[in-house]
Design a protein around this nucleic acid. Structure first.
Lengths: 205, 205, 205, 205
DNA sequence: AATGAATGAGTCTTCATTCAT
DNA sequence: GATGAATGAAGACTCATTCAT
């Protein structure tokens, strides 16, 4: 949907396959090298495509990165949409588990998304907008789950997101997957739980 | 100590000033643009030095980045060394405050360190080793503070470090400084506190 | 006549329309951007045709440019053919008016022709031959109009052509159309008239 | 003076020589191929320089073209400045001779200037401004020489310039140099002379 | 030691042209 | 016949790094 918002939209089957292959390859290369160090040539050859074909569908590197990122972000937003509704019923542990899980979806893409999220690029990139959307939605979820006022939930959202991002980052570094996931859940769960008890909330100050 | 480990060591006063100016400039540029987008030329001109002089002291970009990173990491390690001793006496809140503070030191350098930490470079870079040292030391602190076994503390350390890093990251994005710092502290405090209560620890599984 | 000298000749009505649309589009794009900056893709889409169809009729860019140029040149040659006959009866002013007018025909094509005429391409392009034909014909006209020997008229022809080309060039730059046309006529008229008076002719030397 | 207005100004002898070599090479290549078809790589190798050195002094192709063009235009403007003063004393033939001569200076550069003058580029290029300056100055000269009002002289200037440009253009095409120069002079002389006689002036309408 | 010029591999991107459907 | 996807050779430009002065 938010894929390939510029560039030619493939009309034939062949083109659609190619676009999918390119996105997969781009995700892998961005994940491996980061935005700047990734080269369009490497992505093209990883997708078994000529460089020209790459540019047919994605007119430049930024838009390609946007497409990769939004593939991940879109699915995450869908997951979070569901969580918004479930949140009131979830305890801190279950909520934390769901949040961490949502950040671990889409294996090749999540690592790319993490790499792309740190970009220092400026300009009206889709990535920025999507990041903001995700942050907002996490805020909604926190508000629904904790019963805290929206402003307080919005203050917490960035930190929760960082903790969610920590899981893929640390997995990528080769740490023990079980431990990483467990600790990420625990950190978020404790944070959320703590936010619901006046005592621990006060600790912030 | 780990400053300028390769390249000519400046012997005269003039040389030492020059190195300091270069490091400051490099920190600012790396923080502003990230590793890849930073150019040696911009760093040189920000340091009011000729590009040739830059290379005299830092034979390549990676080593320069290492030097910048280690200036930050060294001071953080010093701070953490002190914390190792104080940890047994600190409650979760005080500990969290100290940890977050340690990650906010050295204004121009901390942002550079954050930018450089995300580099996907490989090879035997000093940065990696320093990151590992910091991680280990945070593990020691956590063990000392919580009384937990070293292995459990080591599992927690990476997440705590991610939370510590979150503060400078979010500050750089322009979020409200007070809120960011408060929430970072709270997250760590809750996590540490939760780790000391059997109940919440269980939540991890 | 010299249209589409290579490539498939369209036999059906549909094909002929398509060729006409392509030529019009090509003229517009060449006029707007010049030969090098014009792209086959833009021309195709301006003609509402697929790039593949464009190449069916015009096997490469140079030949397409030749076709566009010759459409203009052919009509100019026709006009000049008439002038050859009328020339003996025309005074300098009337002759100048007719010459300038002949260069202002075919609005979209004349600008394209001007743009294409300046191309520094080499090789046996049709454009070169046509330019030579036009030059020769203008020489004939001048000889007929002035009564000068053919060699002298041939010396003058290139300059007269340049003056004729000046009108579309200056119009394209946005100068006042009336003034441009009037001065172009005057320049040619004066030149022709001067060539018929021994006195002014001598000035050349 | 107007050379290399951006890019590094060479401070050492070596750099100054290099800049001169680059300009010469660029003039030759632009003259040979035109702006678009000229490649920076070819210019660099014609100047016996690495591509990087080319970009050190001329940060992009447009600026390089500007520098080449202005080298020609500056000297032409100087020549025309003198002509402004002499014009009242000059008859049409002498004036025409001087004007044509001014357009034939600086052999490698004049051909480049002719090629660059036809560019369809937009944007605030120096070339455009210089062209306008030259046009204005020719207007001044014509006014001074003919005694006509400035507005009328300004109408004539573009045509005179086109005629001046015709000489290098036609020489480049390999026509007989003597004939070309003689006819260019005659055309301008007749035009100027004609503009001073009410009769021929009327012919414009 | 310092300076800044020189180098050239490598990057993104474009576009004429070909080909499979 | 038409369509649009595929191709890859260039081209403009950057920048880490080396070297002569």
């Amino acid at each position: 949907m938010s894929t390939a918002r510029t560039g030619v939209l493939p009309t034939r089957r062949r083109g659609r396959d190619r676009v999918a292959a390119i996105l997969d390859a781009a995700a892998a290369v961005f994940a491996e090298r980061g935005f700047d160090a990734a080269t369009m040539t490497e992505i093209a050859s990883a997708a078994c495509t000529a460089i020209g074909s790459l540019y047919r569908f994605f007119p430049n590197k930024d838009l390609l990165a946007d497409a990769v990122f939004s593939r991940y972000a879109d699915s995450m937003l869908d997951t979070l949409d569901v969580l918004v509704l479930q949140a009131p019923l979830l305890g801190p542990e279950a909520l934390a588990e769901a949040l961490v899980a949502s950040g671990l979806q889409q294996r090749p893409y999540r690592d790319a998304a993490v790499a792309l999220a740190d970009e220092r690029n400026e300009g009206p990139l889709l990535r920025k907008a999507l990041r903001a959307s995700i942050r907002d939605k996490v805020g909604l979820i926190l508000a629904a789950a904790t019963g805290l006022p929206a402003t307080q939930a919005a203050r917490m959202a960035p930190m929760v997101l960082q903790a969610m991002k920590a899981a893929p980052v640390l997995l990528r570094e080769g740490l023990d997957p079980e431990a990483v996931v467990a600790e990420a859940r625990r950190m978020i769960a404790c944070y959320v739980a703590g936010s619901m008890q006046p005592a621990c909330t006060a600790a912030g100050r």
